[in-house]
Design a protein around this nucleic acid. Structure first.
Lengths: 66, 66
DNA sequence: AACAAATGTAAAACATATTTGTCATTAATG
DNA sequence: CATTAATGACAAATATGTTTTACATTTGTT
């Protein structure tokens, strides 16, 4: 699983903490997802995509081995 | 979280077991997700959407309270 | 009615996600 | 340079997802 979170945040110009607030998770959750340490649940993926106004597939992409 | 899994399977005419095979999870995982008992990881959601040739948002939808 | 295929369910074990708290490091700004 | 905002990282605790095994129920077919 790859993700574009950092880029999407940059486009919207919001911080990790702000994104965390918007989707009601802790800042650490954003931080660790963003740094690829784990894959979020579908609920979080949908919420993030909604915040960024893009499809889930534009934020998260499968990789070899997923 | 709502999902359309049953409908998407019907469209493709595949069983729970076949879908499980296609995305490399157990049949019970499909069964319990389909019956709304829990929300899958984003990896599974992406794989399912891929199998059905639709965006993740067409298979899984947020509800009040998510 | 009998049989097979598909689905529902449940418990235990294991794996992964998420939170909370805390501190270190890096930008950015006065 | 000093200060503040933003990010990176880590550990422990808790919650949630996933597998495996096994059995019960439903549905479709002959």
């Amino acid at each position: 699983m790859k993700n574009n979170l950092r880029v999407q945040r940059a486009i919207k110009n919001i911080t990790q903490a702000e994104l965390a607030d918007l989707i009601q998770v802790s800042r650490q959750t954003i931080n660790t997802i963003e740094s690829g340490k784990y894959v979020p649940s579908t609920v979080l993926a949908l919420k993030m995509a909604k915040v960024f106004n893009v499809p889930v597939e534009e934020v998260f992409q499968l990789e070899e081995g997923d």
